[in-house]
Write a protein that binds this DNA or RNA. Sequence first.
RNA 1: CGGGGAGUGGCGCAGCUUGGUAGCGCGCCUGCUUUGGGAGCAGGAGGUCGCCGGUUCGAAUCCGGUCUCCCCGACCA
Length: 483
Amino acid sequence: MAPPREDPPDAPRPSKGALTPRRVDFPRWYQEVVARAELADNGPVRGTMVIRPWGFAIWERLQAALDMRIKAAGAENAYFPLFIPESYLRLEAEHVEGFSPELAVVTHGGGKQLEEPVVVRPTSETVINSYFAKWVQSHRDLPLLVNQWANVVRWELRPRLFLRTTEFLWQEGHTAHATEADARAYALRILRDVYVDTMEQVVGIPVVTGHKTARERFAGATRTWTCEGMMGDGKALQMGTSHELGQNFARAFGIQFTDEEGVLRYAWQTSWGVSTRLIGALVMAHGDDAGLRLPPELAPVEVVVLLVRDENGARRAAAALVDELTAAGHRVRLDDRTDTSFGRRSVGWELKGVPARVEVGPRDLADGVVTVVARHDRTKATVPIAAAAGAVGDVLAATASVLHDEAAAELARRTSEVADVAAAVDAAAVGFARVPWAALGVEGEAALAAQAVSVRCLQAADGSLAREGAPEDDLVAVVARAY
RNA sequence: CGGGGAGUGGCGCAGCUUGGUAGCGCGCCUGCUUUGGGAGCAGGAGGUCGCCGGUUCGAAUCCGGUCUCCCCGACCA
């Protein structure tokens, strides 16, 4: 019997050791990249994650970028305990309702049953606000702007490395303000100046911003602002949220201050966070069939100098190039493992996403040249040794914008404007659909949910954030399948 | 909770129908030859076959029980 006329051109027969192509099986491709780029392993307890050195180095760089912006926004770092009295969670009704299904509760300590169980923090609103209540007395104590870097635990039934794990790392900011307007302005400032800026400029992922529907809102918030990114398969990933908490927690925990007129008032609050999930976003938004592609700012190694063979002074030339690139301010690694084949080493660095590679071998060297390879499109250029550092600089500079622009083009290509639920479901099979909220409403949102499509956010018709007091019927819902 | 599937070296799998004491690919170790896109040859290490019990001279294989994981549905948000 004759085989089918032709194999799909984008699905070649798997060559030995190659990744599953993205279009064949995206989730499998993701798992393989995470494993083979040595980002993370599954932990021994279901849903837990071991972040390996390569993955953690990316996280550290992301942390640095975020931390700098958080501090620029005026918040200070602090640290609050892992264990929270169970009773604290109950103080805010919606909050406890939202989180109780996924709490890890410690019932024993020191060999005895505890009188009051303690929960492992799923988020720290409750502990932090119990201290805010002590610290805030006067309007002069406001605004109070605190951030912490921490791990949190939410017992997950369907874990996936980085995207949804039982324990993960994040930063959570918590603030208290004298007025509602001040709190709202700060929540938006964090959204724009910290989150959107980091995602666009550092991670290179264009995001769709807006606010969550009541159904998707953070438990205890009055408004949740969100950044949603589009992954390589067209699905949405919530990449960061900034919440206006109103006075919900202030009333529950008694955060009161005396204003300029001597009147006792409750504070207005915000909270906001992004997590190691961003590493998953990075993989899924920028990765290709050869593995990870890293923006230079997040790459643990920006350029690898690969010694092809240790002959005719190639080692000396490679070492000199490492020195020159280091002096130029790049993070450089020398790969002189010449007992491992050239192909294996090349493929390995591509899997790990290193943006630039310089191949130094005796053949090129005889002509006074080296080969500079760009990871983002795997193009090679032969350049004189003296020009190598400059060429690497060009590759690095190009990588950041290419990754961002490709992601932006993909977002635009996979986003459509539709008018009703049925069309939205169809469009969500491809990517994002923008549908008038008036055509959807709570019933439409439920209908979409039955088809595994969710409202990622609401925004103004032109894509900007909804202005205060704007009629709900003027808003547009961005809907998609989501992680 | 209901339906389906799967547990065998680090990873991916075969073997089970028809019981005879475990095999393949990748990976790993040693040596030699190699090295410009996942090298070749030779040698080698590594497994209480998820767990408990039963049948049998003998169980990865047959029977009963149990645990875990995956997929679909339900539930929850």
